[in-house]
């Protein structure tokens, strides 16, 4: 069942009809809406559409609510891992879940929580994280060189910077796994997952802009109120 090679030319038309994923991050306006992307994705074979659905369900943050429990995350990851046969996609699933685990650990520790119980988290580093709970990077510097910066941003309460760092790291990971996949199902899934990162990136920027606007408006109104009070 596993390690089934995929057809390298299965989705030539589909991939050629999508804007380059790097353009997603530099464009001022979104070059591709979700509606248009979904319309193009109708070209997927049913089996591949299911693969994409399960991968997105496990990895795309827009499919999670804030109160989604760890057990549900684990269930979705396992379901995707059971279904997906392409080695590159399985590696993406594993790596993304490991990144998510280490980020969750950073957040838990920042919130002052105790080390999680054994069996918590995904992938190869869960036990190491629990064993090195007190260390800033859980002793995982060689594996995740960005972890020290992430720890620093969390310590400074720079939520936006932290979010951007995580998105950048994830996007880099997707680009690395995408090498050698141009027109196959792996390329399609990687593109859609990258689109999700872009979507999250755009939302983060919009939220930051909104917060900045509100702060400026409040500052301006405060000055105005002070002048009114004087007069």
């Amino acid at each position: 069942m596993f390690d089934r090679p995929s057809d390298p030319d299965a989705y030539v038309t589909l991939m050629a009809s999508l804007p380059d994923s790097e353009r997603l991050f530099v464009a001022k306006r979104p070059p591709l809406s979700r509606l248009r992307l979904d319309r193009r994705l109708k070209a997927l074979a049913p089996e591949d559409a299911e693969t994409l659905r399960l991968m997105e369900e496990a990895l795309a943050l827009r499919h999670y609510r804030l109160d989604t429990e760890d057990a549900e995350v684990t269930r979705r990851a396992r379901r995707a891992m059971d279904h997906v046969t392409q080695p590159a996609l399985r590696a993406i699933l594993r790596d993304r879940m490991e990144i998510r685990t280490v980020i969750a650990a950073l957040r838990r520790r920042r919130a002052g929580e105790a080390p999680p119980p054994p069996g918590w988290g995904h992938g190869r580093f869960s036990r190491r994280i629990i064993a090195h709970w007190a260390e800033p990077t859980f002793g995982l510097d060689p594996v995740f060189p960005w972890l020290r910066e992430a720890h620093g941003l969390l310590e400074q309460d720079d939520a936006l910077g932290f979010e951007r760092l995580v998105l950048t790291v994830t996007e880099r990971l997707m680009r690395r796994h995408g090498a050698g996949h141009d027109f196959d199902i792996e390329a399609v899934v990687i593109y859609v997952l990258t689109w999700n990162i872009y979507d999250r990136w755009a939302r983060t920027n919009a939220e930051a802009a909104s917060r900045r606007f509100n702060a400026l408006a409040e500052a301006a109104l405060a000055g105005h109120d002070a002048q009114l009070a004087k007069s």
């Binding site: 030319d9 030539v12 038309t13 991939m15 050629a16 009809s17 999508l18 804007p19 027109f183």
Partner: peptide, 13 residues
């Protein structure tokens, strides 16, 4: 056929 499919996709974009 492979190159033709790519050109059709590119025409959409």
């Amino acid at each position: 056929s492979i190159a033709g499919q790519a050109s059709i996709g590119a025409m959409l974009e």
